[in-house]
Amino acid sequence: MEKLLHNIIEFLPSLLKGTQFTIQITFFAIIISTLFGFIFSLCLISKKRYLNKPVRIFINIIRGTPLLVQMFYVYFVLPDIGIKLGAMEAGILALSICYGAYHAEIFRSGIISITIGQWDAAKSIGLRYHQIMSRIILPQAARIILPPMGTSYIILLKDSSLASVITVRELTRAGQLIASTTFENLTVFTMVAVIYIILTQLLNLFIHAMEKKYRLK
């Protein structure tokens, strides 16, 4: 028991350091992937072929390849064409593009679920496209978008562990390093798992607060 406590106290600082990286990657990837997803979804619902076709093809490519391969691609292949990114930035970019593709479909499903009558009414009082989107469509679509979006954010958080393969010392990698030198696999990976659970629960709280905000009156 005493040894366990001692181990926990010894491992905690470097695991927390890793947690900090995990939070950073997740935070930026959530914001950027949400932005990508929204922009992609506007292209997808556009009637203009030069907007919806290329984005549709791009999304199919992204959804058709493993995130792990995308990580390698961003970190090892992009430098060949002159785009050099640090491990952290590469991890954030790969996650953002990959989840941007999924988020595009989530946004799209929310936007097309709003009846055409809402567009008609908003147009009939002279509103512009961006006003209709921001004032009429998105506030209503949020109710439909948020539950699957929340799930997606949680998967994104866990998938940030894949950045370990491109040398980012995030939580999983930090755990691996400790385990490989101390052989305290049970303790280390249980601690890692518990930290992930705490992070995902915090994310859950945030999502639920958002869902409450957009609940139907």
Binding site: T115, G117, Q118, D120, A121, A122, K123, S124, I125, G126, L127, R128, I136, P139, Q140, Y214, L216, K217
Partner: peptide
């Protein structure tokens, strides 16, 4: 087109009120 729509009022069969606004 926005000016035209602003000057022509329209009432729809399905009301089409914005449900998230009072």
């Amino acid at each position: 087109v926005y000016k035209v729509r602003a000057e022509v009022g329209m009432v729809f069969q399905q009301f089409n009120l914005f449900p998230h606004m009072n």
